[in-house]
Design a binder for these strands. Structure first.
Lengths: 317, 317
DNA sequence: ATGAAAGCGCTAACAG
DNA sequence: CTGTTAGCGCTTTCAT
């Protein structure tokens, strides 16, 4: 390549990186590059510079629409800045997650956007090597890193309030695992709204499930077995609401027969002519925000860690 | 690292790659690695070996549920084989696509799974450098590469047949762009089913849209403006069906008032108590199949190019 | 089984 | 502005 253009490798490098090179040599290089279909090796550049233009997106499951949109947001910002995104599905499995974080290190990735599998994911190895990490949705605890989240309590409160306003009084809550902060936050919002309305949250009506379809299914079934079943339910995530809806459909008590409010939207389902209150999450915005924070860190910003809390929006039907 | 273990770099490499090394030295190396939190540099290895354990997944849009599932399938197979997946959204833009293909080359990626933005995507640069490419859904024409597709005609036929069996006679078809083979294939299936039933496909009832939500919306609106509007519609992809359903909902003629059959499913929408015929696509299976083909090629398989046609499955409601 | 040495393709420092 | 040089961290002969 350098030979064909009759210049030194350094000059080729300079041309490819838009540095100052005489027009004449620059032209020779570009012509030679064209003639040889030359593609600069990112690998070699990464090895030399000790960092790549790749970021890892570590999430539980791309098939969860929330993470799908988030991923799209991340990819948009990344690609506009010349970065690529490696998709890492963890299925909430700490081992898978750890493996991906190791790969991020070994591949000199520029940074990581992480929806942690749990509260105690370990990103210390990355931090120590100066690789920025931004937490989305939920954070690994014990690390002083940027985070982008939503107002879980406020969302839970708003959803429950909508149910109250629709005239429901015996309102259940299906939330995620007890030890996950997003789950407890949303449940707190539920309890808060009830209390504010002069009602006492019934512990029987609060169910901790697994944030997946089958969790919602099972919890909803259990609620309906209760001596005094609820007349409305706040389901604290999108996937569980699918399971809950399945059960309601089976028993022929779909909304409005049963009041339903969901935290997190399901794309395309709004089509359905069912009166469901949805607390919509700005998933894509979370993604773009996180990606922008990460890029700032990659570019050397070292101000104290920031947590950005995005607002959810109640979209009633 | 090699120093701490008191061995040569070559021995470290051998240990990390599971080659024959005396137990004693092997132990020393592993201990030193542990002590230093050593992570082998994939970058250096890639530079040396001239190929990485990364594959590019180039698709129009991860937010299309079809590609979401496909991506999940790809990632599953890839990660099980020790590969990572770079997510590339093209938005059907040839320039974006070309840029990503260039990156795949520059990063020494092991291979590419491509849902081409159009019929004339150019993968020659990859092929020439011996990087395998597997086409999914639709293929770049003029290249002799592996492909994984679905039976578009059969699916279109089955969907239309279901509508006929439900008693509909004036059945429209909303398909994709005229120059996209998946679009014409599905439309052919529609026409074929009508003909087989002794009906003549009415050209007015065949609409070429853009495979996106707004395309379905507009086409459906136009159909309803017709002097003799259809009493049923076959919509040839999932996104357009969302637009079509929106229009039907606005006018209060949701199924069963209007017959509806869709090629491609929308996850979670099956919940909806609407009688819609869905030709379900094995999106995840397409992804796993494509990934497996690609891995075979990466591992040196050089048999003639294969095209695997997967069956769609009619799921009526 | 092990070490020495070369080199993958690039870029940063230095000298001119 | 440009060339020379060294070296990023690994793998792979080639000897031993």
């Amino acid at each position: 390549m350098a030979r064909l253009a009759g210049v030194s490798p350094a000059t080729v490098s300079r041309v490819m990186n838009g540095m100052n090179v005489s027009p004449e040599r620059s032209k020779r290089v570009r012509e030679a590059a064209e003639a040889l279909s030359f593609r600069p090796s990112r690998t070699a550049r990464t090895l030399r510079r000790q960092n790549s233009e790749v970021i890892a997106l570590v999430i539980p499951d791309i098939e969860n629409p929330f993470f799908t949109s988030l991923a799209r947001g991340v990819e948009d910002v990344a690609q506009a800045a010349g970065y690529s995104v490696v998709l890492c599905n963890t299925d909430e499995d700490h081992d898978k997650e750890a493996k991906y974080l190791d790969i991020a290190i070994g591949a000199n990735m520029a940074g990581v956007i992480l929806a942690a599998a749990g509260d105690h994911s370990d990103v210390s190895e990355l931090i120590e090597r100066g690789r920025p990490v931004v937490a989305v949705d939920r954070g690994p605890h014990g690390f002083d890193i940027d985070a982008v989240t939503v107002d879980n309590r406020a969302g839970g409160r708003a959803a429950t309030k909508a149910l109250l306003e629709a005239g429901h009084r015996r309102i259940a809550c299906i939330t995620g695992p007890k030890d996950v902060e997003t789950a407890t936050g949303r449940a707190d919002g539920w309890a808060g709204a009830l209390t504010a309305a002069g009602l006492t949250p019934d512990p029987d009506l609060l169910r901790y499930a697994n944030f997946r379809v089958d969790g919602g299914e099972q919890a909803m079934a259990e609620l309906l077995e209760l001596p005094e079943p609820p007349d409305a339910v706040f389901v604290a995530n999108n996937l569980m609401s699918v399971g809950a809806l399945q059960v309601l459909a089976e028993r022929g008590i779909l909304p409005p027969a049963t009041g339903l409010a969901i935290f997190g939207d399901l794309p395309f389902v709004p089509l359905v002519p069912l009166p469901i209150t949805v607390v919509a999450l700005p998933a894509r915005l979370i993604g773009t925000t996180a990606a922008n924070l990460l890029l700032e860190r990659i570019n050397g910003d070292d101000q104290p860690a920031r947590t950005i809390v995005l607002r959810s929006r109640v979209a009633p039907r």
